[in-house]
Every structure is written in C-alpha cells, then in structure tokens.
Design a protein around this nucleic acid. Structure first.
Lengths: 338, 338
DNA sequence: TACTTTTGGTTAATCGATTAAACAAATATA
DNA sequence: TATATTTGTTTAATCGATTAACCAAAAGTA
C-alpha cells in the first residue's frame, strides 16, 4: 500500500517551497524563519516523514554506524559490554551493528568486510581465540576509520584497547588461595598467543614464585578453555601422582567442566581441591558449590570502549594519542574456594 | 592517510572508460566484453575497491539489511536463533542488524524506529515481555516491509510467525510427570497476555484435566519468570498445606530459582518434588540435579524465520499468504524428574 | 551493395538529503 | 537618497552506484 515513503520533496511540494528549505528547517538552520520551520515540522509529522538514512549518510560521508565484533553474544560478559556500549553510543546518535565471530578467524574476516562495506564510522572488536594473523585488522586501520579493541586484544596492532589487568588478577587469585592454606596450585590456562591468557599465566607464575610454592610444568596447562577443555585438563591434573590442592582456571566455562569432573569423582570442593574461575558468569553463583571468580567490570569496559571511539569522531582529523585503558578487576569469593 | 576510498570513478579514470561500464563490468553485465571485465576487475583489486553500500542501496531502494529485535542476546536460545538466521540470510546477500529490547517496551519502540531509519528491508522480531501495545509493530507493516515474528508473537498482529507448539509441549511434560507417578502437579507460568505463556497454561490445564488430576487455582501462578520469580513462586507453593509433588516451570531461569530454594530447604529433587523447566538452556544440564526441559529447536526457528523473510523479497510485489509455522518441541528428560 | 542486427559501450538521469553559492527583498547605515 | 547588510530562501551541485535510453562500429543477411 504505502509503498512510497515520504521524502523531503513531498513536504516541499505541500508547502510550495524548495527541498533545501525543508532540509534546513528540519535541521534547525539559523537562516530559516521560525514560521517556515513550524510549518515544515507540522507537515513532516502529518505525512509521517522518516528521513532516509542512506541518502544523508551518503551525502555527509558518515553513516553514524559503529561495527562491533565479538566472539559470541551469549556470554554474559559480552552481552553486558554491548548493552553499555549501546547506551553511550546511542546518546551520541550512533547505532551499533553487532556481528559474532563464533571464535572463528574466517568468520571474523567476513565480519570485517561486511562492516567496512556498510560504511561504518568505526569498529570495536574483541578478537576470536583463533585469530593470529592481524592483516585483516590492518585493513581497518588503512581504511582510515578508528578501531578499538577490548578484552581480547593484541599489542602488536598498536591500537586503542580497553581491558582489565589480567596479570594482577592472577595475583589476587593466588593470594586468596594461599590465604586459604593452599600449597600446590595448578593453572588451567588459555593459549599464550592470546594476550590476556598470556598475562594470566605470567601473573600466575610470578605470584607462585613470590610465595615460594612449587611451579612444576605439570601444574600449568594450555587449551581453548571450553567446558570440554576444562574436563580434559582437570583429568590430567587428577592423574598426577602429586595432585594439586587448588586449581585456578582462566575461564568460568572451563572451571564448570572441571567442577563437573570433580563432582563425578566425588572429590570434595573446596575441602579436597579449591577451585577458582574467571569472568564471573552468572552460572558461577548458581551451581553447587558456587564458584569463586573474577569480575571483569563489563559495564565499564563497554562504556569506555564506546567513549574512546567517540573521542576520535568528535575531533575531526586530529588523531588523539593511543589509549590503553586497563581496569582493576575484582575477586568474588564463593564456596568453591573457602 | 588513505582518506579517500576508491570509487567507480577512480577505476574508470585508470581505464579511460565510463563509470557505467565499470559498474556493469563488476556486476557481470552481458553487454560488457570479457576483456573489459577482466581489466576492470584487475584494477578494482589493485586499488582495493570496496563498493559503497550506501550509494547502491540508495539507488536500488534496497539496503540488503534485515533488522532483528530480540529480548536479549545472552540466552542460548536467542543466540542460537540469530546464528542460524545469519547463515541463511548471508547466503542471500543480506546482513543482520541485531538490537536488544532488554524486555523493555520503550527500548523495543526505539529499536523499531532505528531499524526503519536505517532502511532495513525487513524486520524479524521476538517481542519483549512487557509489550502489549502493538501500534509500533503496525508501523512496520504500514511501512511496507515484511515483518516476521518468532517465539514471542501475537495473533492479533496477523503477521508471519515461527515458533514451537507450546500447547503440545505442556501436554508432553504432564504426560511425562504422570508416567513418573506424580499426582499433584503445579505450574509456574508466565503472564497469559503473552501468547506463548497462555498456550503453555492452556496445555497444562487441559492435560491435567485429561488425567483427572487436581487443578486447584493455587497450583497455577503467573509471573515474569525471572530467576527471582522462580524463587518466589516456589515459596508460595511450598507454603500450601497440600504441597505439589511436581512443578512444571515455564522458563529454565525460573526453574533454576525454584531449584535453588528447594535445595536450600533440603527438599529432595526429584524424590520429594519433581521439576521440569522450559527452553533447554545449557545450564539445565550443568546444575545438580540436572533439569528436565523442553528443547525449542532454535536452529530450525532461526532458519525458518529467515527463509520466510526471503520468501517475501524474492517475489517482487506478490504478497504470499500468511505463514504460521509451528514446530514440534522435544522433551529432554534429566535427573530432576526421574 | 544496402539494410538489419548484434556488440560494446556512452550519456545522462536518478535515488534522497545536504550544502555552497547565488539572489531577491527587507532592513539598516551613512 | 544611495549603499551596505541582513534575512530568508532558491538553485544547482554533490555523495557513489545503477540503469534506461541512446549510439557508433562491427558483423550478418538478403
């Protein structure tokens, strides 16, 4: 029915003025009389006028769109980050296009292409676990639009970054476990090639050394940290002749897998083995025993990443200096470690 | 640096041909010689040409964008739906813009405005719990673009819908509980104003009657079905002088809340009270005891909703008849009910 | 040879909004 | 009164890709 959307021209025709006048009236240009503005806005409302974003974006060279790339949206951390980003960007008139990489490098590249194709004004991303080759990210930079990374970033790219202090987080965890009397602490970690996991591992090792605790190689494992990985890695640790009395897992999902195995084997948590996760996913407080974890301030991260982006677009060409924002994390102590 | 993106004109200049020829060459028009096509594509690659989506969308009157509105992305159901939608739409050259309503009616209206503003070619939505007023959805219809609802829909809107058979799902659950020997089955349901929850309630009541079981009013409660609601509602049921021996909860989150309370009170599940949830969220298999639940075939729903949309855009103006696709659900029996 | 068809393009208009430049009318200033 | 300035608006170009209409040259046909 209403096939045709109302355009500036339709309004102009009704009032017998030029489309330029209509455009200016709607944008509150100082050179348009109050009378005309009123009339224009009135007619615009009557005709249910909706500006055509494509046309204005094309003309202005700005789409007012921000592209977002996350590993997946169904983790509480990422969904919370997105929510808070949205809030900030919305106020500045920007809309977000969310894409998921599903932890796949290939999908991530596709997403970058799609976003550039849609002429987004900037990209905010958290890299997939798989991603090692950074050439696609260089593509964004060479496109001249701002790129901001959060959580999963890479130092090599030399772009803005917002995340938490993973190194210190490991220290907090080890301090806590030591205070609980643990003497032999294992770490189920991510792959070192990913910055955040590398930092967690470094923090773990340094903290262990600081307390003169054993840091045998067999106590440290690397994996993708899926729930299944958590199961497999804890099995390995349990098979050791000298079992750990605490396990620090670098992801809540893997921690959950580990907990499942421990329960299946009737190993009491926290009595026999204490367990600590990372990320403070909601389920950590829901399972039995509830899992001690690190809260990452997802709200702050989302907010700051969005604001960093806005910092670029506000000041025309003036490229501000690189921003690396590192937030402090918080240890949420629950039953699994006390 | 590379401020200026390459345009058709740049390619045309290099080859000293018209932009029209370049455009046609890139779109494999039959009237362009193989030689020219090769040359154009070669130069396009060299100059790293990226078509400007805004320009072509404006000219063609199609943005190749599909708007998506979901209550939230951090539930496994919705994130899985999105993933499968994406897969189908991607093949057809469409991109998705995901928006979250956070179960808020106001946010949902904002999202609709945003999507229309971005000139999406269609909208696929699952309504917020709060939403009762449908005028905003009428706005989409009057805009002339296809609207497809899934999971949370409304009959009154008279648009395409993809979902599961909630009425039958309730029957399956009751059959199962009856087979387990339950005699007094309660239902912690959603608000009747929402179609799916109304159907679940109707199914519950009819199945109960069919088996000549008691269907006291006190056994049926309505709420928003958050985790907290689950806790509150189960408390009410436990306070009854004649307690139920089974509880069917219309959402996994509320079921989890109920389970927490039952465990805190040392009421054995499933021995004293059997529990069934709805939605088959991953955590249902992770908690102890694992929770019996209904799987909603999120993959199918995502796929079918996307295909329904494509059904509209392929055939020009020809408006196909209304599609109401109702899928069968599946009962996943776990420890909480056997 | 003379006319028709095919091939391979070119020209110019278009999508809708924005904006630099131009301009007439009204008002202010000398 | 003559000139300068301000006000309010129009004209026309523009963003980049697409496409209807047109056209010249080459090839085919009677």
């Amino acid at each position: 029915m209403n096939k045709k959307r109302t355009t500036l021209k339709d309004i102009a025709n009704v009032l017998s003025i030029s489309t330029a006048a209509v455009s200016k009236a709607l944008n509150d240009d100082a050179r348009i009389s109050v009378k005309t503005k009123k009339a224009v806005k009135q007619v615009a409302k009557e005709l249910n006028y909706q500006p055509n974003h494509l046309a204005s974006a094309l003309r202005k060279g700005k789409s007012k769109l921000v592209g977002l790339i996350v590993p997946r949206t169904n983790s509480n951390f990422f969904s919370s980050v997105v929510e808070n980003m949205e809030e900030v960007l919305d106020k500045a008139g920007y809309n977000i296009i969310i894409t998921q990489s599903n932890e796949s490098f290939e999908k991530e590249c596709d997403n970058i292409d799609t976003l550039l194709y849609l002429q987004v004004d900037g990209i905010i991303a958290s890299m997939a676990n798989e991603t090692v080759d950074l050439s696609y990210y260089e593509k964004i930079k060479s496109n001249g639009i701002p790129l901001i990374l959060f959580d999963r970033g890479e130092n090599d790219l030399n772009v803005d970054y917002v995340g938490i202090n993973d190194y210190d987080s490991s220290h907090m965890i080890i301090e806590h476990l030591v205070a609980q009397g643990c003497k032999r602490i294992a770490h189920i970690g991510g792959y070192r090639r990913t910055r955040i996991f590398n930092n967690r591992i470094r923090g773990y090792i340094d903290a262990i050394k600081k307390h003169n605790l054993p840091h045998d190689d067999e106590l440290l494992t690397e994996s993708s940290l899926t729930l299944e990985d958590g199961r497999n890695q804890i099995e390995k640790l349990l098979a050791l002749k000298n079992r750990p009395d605490a396990v620090y897992v670098a992801s809540d999902y893997a921690a959950l897998g580990a907990l499942q195995v421990l329960k299946e084997r009737n190993i009491k948590v926290p009595e026999e083995i204490k367990l600590v996760g990372f990320g403070n996913e909601p389920f950590t407080s829901l399972v039995t025993p509830s899992i001690t974890s690190i809260s990452q301030h997802s709200k702050q991260i989302g907010k700051l990443a969005a604001e960093t982006f806005l910092g670029y677009v506000d000041k025309d060409v003036v490229r501000q200096s690189l921003n690396k924002i590192i937030l402090d994390s918080e240890l949420i102590v629950r039953d699994s470690s006390k």
